[in-house]
């Protein structure tokens, strides 16, 4: 059975840090699972498609904030760089970074889903 710590390892997060901050595994787990419901990533993809870069910046910024809260370092890092790239509108780096965020997000989401499945409805 996959532990929360293993899940963190898989998604490139810092379990110790988040545990230090949120203090109990129960709370961490609750928020990690909630991450899947967070609509920021959808918003990011949508706004990039619409070329609404202001909105995309906010979405990336929010993902960064959530990741920092949950210590999802890898996704937090790429989304942070994306946010910087979009801070004052579109820049050439943005597209490549969006791809990076997309990849990291998928990995993160996959790891959490795996953890969810294995831990079932417990």
């Amino acid at each position: 059975m996959m532990s929360l710590e293993e899940c963190y390892d898989a998604l490139g997060g810092n379990y110790k840090a988040v545990l230090g901050r949120l203090s109990s595994e129960r709370i961490v787990k609750k928020f990690v699972l909630k991450f899947l419901n967070d609509q920021s990533y959808v918003l990011l993809e949508q706004s990039m498609q619409d070329k609404n870069y202001e909105e995309a910046f906010r979405a990336a910024h929010t993902i960064k904030g959530v990741c920092q809260n949950l210590s999802f370092d890898r996704l937090g890092d790429s989304s942070s760089r994306l946010a910087e790239a979009l801070r004052s509108g579109w820049t050439p780096e943005a597209d490549a970074l969006v791809d990076e965020v997309k990849r990291d997000y998928q990995e993160t989401a996959d790891a959490i889903r795996a953890f969810q499945t294995e831990n079932g409805e417990s």
Binding site: R21, F31, K34, F35, N37, D38, T62, N69, L70
Partner: peptide
């Protein structure tokens, strides 16, 4: 706070 997850974390804490 516009993000629900962030809000929940904050509330929890």
């Amino acid at each position: 706070e516009d993000n629900e997850l962030n809000w929940e974390v904050a509330e929890e804490l």
